[in-house]
Design a protein around this nucleic acid. Structure first.
Lengths: 340, 340
DNA sequence: CTGTTAGCGCTTTCAC
DNA sequence: GTGAAAGCGCTAACAG
């Protein structure tokens, strides 16, 4: 019986082979004979040897691990992005550590510290909505630590971002509503702390402007990304005159708003048409007529990871911004038929 | 300028203080004077010192990290359980590594290897649906490595499990349907590889038996936990005569089945009543009349983590099974009114 | 093909 | 209150 963990030295002693050879064998070095390898791996299995990655990582100064920080895993968009990240990473022999910031700046900061203390090789991050200054990031970027931002852009000139063209997508979905006869389009926006919601808001305004529709401040309803917000948003929208369409740039608000409207027996899209950003499969279930801009979440994850690997392998750190194409999903014709 | 990472030795040299003192100071040891501590932490900040957790963990043989393996983060139940785990762990100063098995046995095995190689202090796991033998777990449990199973029970006599009483919950929801006048209740079940779905199935049968209703094999429809399965399930159910209620023990199947039925304009619950397990908030949105058994996912996470900490702190490994109470949510009266 | 040796960055006795 | 020295488990020159 052995107390504590088995090390290569235990194998070494039992076999009378030096621990360096054991190490090489276990790493499948070509410089060890097949016979020795077999003996060693047999003994390793017998003793229940379990490699100590910490020691290995410390020694080699390589962890083969990437850190991922996202607001919440429960959001479909992020869960799907993670799937893309993991697939790409695992294929390349990398491990992935997933962390949630819960959209808290403080937590985000701590997570970055922890990931760096654990010497991850790079970080893929979608910054929290509370994050308005980037001091906690600049320090590491200055040292050439690879950081890839996705979904929520971060100073696009100075960083590597993987995003969609939020302005354009927002413009198109708004115009889609206009083409279908809707005039009084409420916009549910998100926290204006981040470029993402700023750009979506700009796209909405630009579409209105192009078609010479008025831009009314009270028609732009801002909120956080919480489920509760949707109900508030819906109530506010109902208090406005003549609303015939809602374009929500914010999944959470959209879904819970629809839920609320339904519970009040306010039908969608007969009285109100919904359109908006959403990767939540639920939205289609709640309202099959919903028009949505689906972001390529899985692909985003893959692309971000590949860019990170590029940077790691070629030791480059260029700050390019990659823009992916979203998909406008028009589930059925939701034209406005009655002109009241 | 310094190339590479700053270590305590860099601070030590710059200050002419031994690295052991630097280490003590950085760990806030009471055996270092306040003045020295201040000097050291100032210099650390100045140099951009970033502690190397790997070295620390290797040396102390303590990682203050727990591993969590769940099938998928995108499932609301698991995302919520993770929230409970993280909250408890962070409060205790522990880090959490989240991994998804994607319900693959092979992947689960590898993840366990990786977590153990990284010397996590314990693992909280909800085993994959493909997992039918526990060899990959027994080896570590035999060594006294702490493993807490939750949601999906694993050999309850031999392990520490945190579960709900699936039999009882299933019995109650089935009986609830019976009390409301439903007679021909289809049961959507999950993979029979795991006790969980076995027990839910038994509960269903027991309720029928108690009320002297026939148990018909074709009324029990088994499937995996995939979204696609729901559609198949729904089709199968529609082919059966006289179905007036469906009790799904499987969230995914339930949701996509409802989605399918809706798309076919088959109304719920007028022709068919649904009831079942679900922590997905969406279910309430899709069908406000749905009766569901909600599992205390967040609490499960907290409880599992606390049990793990108990075992770690008191160095005990008793195999008790903790049974939590689910909530039967009856959203509105879904009695069968017409007796056709 | 295998052994010797040094050291990754940190903590922790043991001295003083 | 601080320093000296050893070592966690592993890998990687360098020899032979």
């Amino acid at each position: 019986m052995h107390k504590g963990k088995i090390t290569i030295h235990d194998i070494s002693k039992e076999l009378g082979i030096d621990s360096s050879t054991v190490s090489r064998a276990l790493n499948n070095s070509p410089r060890v004979s097949k016979k020795t390898k077999e003996k060693i791996s047999a003994k390793a299995k017998e003793l229940g040897y379990q490699r100590n990655s910490l020691a290995s990582k410390l020694r080699t100064n390589k962890t083969h691990t990437i850190g991922v920080i996202i607001p919440r895993i429960s959001r479909h968009f992020f869960a799907s992005a993670i799937a893309g990240i993991e697939e790409t990473a695992y294929d390349a022999g990398y491990d992935v550590i997933i962390c949630q910031s819960l959209d808290s700046y403080e937590r985000e900061q701590k997570l970055i510290e922890t990931l760096l203390a654990n010497r991850v090789d790079g970080i893929i991050i979608s910054i929290s909505m509370e994050t308005t200054n980037y001091n906690h990031l600049d320090r590491y970027k200055a040292n050439g630590f690879p950081m890839i931002f996705f979904d929520r852009p971060c100073e696009t000139e100075k960083n590597t971002n993987v995003i969609i063209d939020d302005f354009q997508a927002s413009f198109e979905v708004t115009e889609h509503l206009i083409f279908n006869g809707y005039k009084n389009i409420v916009h549910f926006s998100g926290p204006q702390t981040n470029l993402l919601y700023q750009n979506r808001c700009k796209g909405y305004k630009a579409a209105l402007k192009k078609h010479k529709y008025p831009i009314r401040k009270e028609y732009i309803i801002e909120s956080k990304l919480m489920e509760e917000d949707g109900i508030e948003n819906a109530k506010k929208a109902l208090n406005l005159p003549n609303v015939d369409a809602i374009y929500s740039a914010n999944d959470m608000a959209a879904i819970s708003a629809m839920q609320y409207l339904k519970s009040q027996n306010i039908k969608i899209p007969e009285q109100i048409a919904f359109a908006g950003f959403s990767n939540e499969p639920v939205s289609a279930v709640i309202e099959p007529s919903l028009t949505t801009v689906n972001q390529p979440s899985f692909e985003m994850g893959k692309v971000a990871t590949n860019i990170l690997f590029d940077q790691l392998n070629n030791n480059t750190r260029e700050n390019k911004t990659t823009i992916l194409e979203p998909t406008l999903i028009i589930r059925n014709s939701s034209s406005k038929t009655n002109n009241n």
